[in-house]
């Protein structure tokens, strides 16, 4: 798909010129007294260090191509993504981290296996060139799906205790009492992905496609990859959100009987 000659490699001069942009932004913030210098500096340093470490790790893994090195890295990425989602839920109910972790793990496993084995059909199932970038992109979406839907559901149940108990008092099972909130939470979890698909190719060129084109790939080939990736991202966000809300709402109830006071 690409070779060393098909794209321009960045040297230190290029990197320095690139860094000038963030330095300029920090300088403008300081000049105008906007107070963003600290956040910008920390974010720029974190981004640089994290990506450099990832780049070096990937280069190392690509050279070795061993499943026992690739798989732990993917598991670590899943753990970090789950933690990141959990952190975004305000006042999470007990067990939320586990619920998110298990759902993200299952959804990632399903999506990545399907993408690598059925759609792209890679020769070696753990080929790090495919597995790691795909897992990375997909996990980004899972973080959104899980965090938004968990946050929305948690808030909705706590804000609607009166209505939920009115349903229960009429003999409704908990799922029926929360049905509207489950739907709303899944819908909210899907909004970023659906919005991105709506404007894809019109308002912005997606990152993966742009990256492939910059690396010398044929634009149409890059487009095909991007379309498949969008579908996978939607599947990921959708299935993560659905699993999270289906398991999480039960944490608010004692069996089929009543709301758990400690969870409210």
């Amino acid at each position: 798909m690409q070779d060393a000659a098909s794209y321009i490699q960045l040297d230190w001069a290029s990197m320095t010129a690139g860094a000038a942009l963030i330095v300029l932004t920090i300088g403008i913030s300081f000049w105008r007294g906007l107070g963003e210098e600290k956040d910008l500096t920390i974010a720029a340093i974190r981004c640089t260090v994290q990506l450099l470490v990832m780049g070096l790790v990937l280069r190392y893994l690509f050279d070795l191509e061993e499943w026992y090195l690739v798989l732990p890295l993917v598991l670590l990425m899943i753990a970090i993504a789950s933690w990141e989602s959990y952190q975004r839920v305000k006042k999470p109910v007990r067990g939320t981290l586990w619920v998110i972790g298990v759902c993200v793990f299952i959804a990632t496993g399903l999506s990545v296996s399907y993408l690598t084995q059925v759609v792209i059909r890679v020769e070696t199932w753990y080929d790090p060139q495919y597995l790691i970038p795909l897992a990375g992109m997909i996990l980004g979406q899972a973080v959104n799906g899980a965090a938004i839907s968990a946050e929305r559901l948690t808030g909705a149940i706590r804000d609607n205790v009166g209505d939920i108990e009115a349903y229960l008092a009429m003999g409704a099972p908990p799922r029926r009492a929360c049905r509207k909130h489950l739907r709303d939470a899944v819908h909210a979890g899907l909004i970023p992905t659906v919005s991105a698909m709506m404007v894809a190719g019109i308002v912005k060129l997606p990152g993966m496609m742009t990256g492939q084109i910059l690396a010398g790939a044929d634009p149409f080939d890059a487009t095909l990859y991007q379309i498949v990736i969008y579908f996978a991202l939607t599947f990921m966000a959708g299935i993560t959100a659905m699993m999270v809300v289906e398991i999480l709402y039960r944490r608010f109830f004692v069996g089929d009987i009543r709301l758990r006071r400690e969870a409210l």
Partner: peptide, 16 residues
Amino acid sequence: VGELRQRLALVPQEPT
């Protein structure tokens, strides 16, 4: 619990 709540109907304070 469904049968219990059919026999004994609670009307909550807030008329939701």
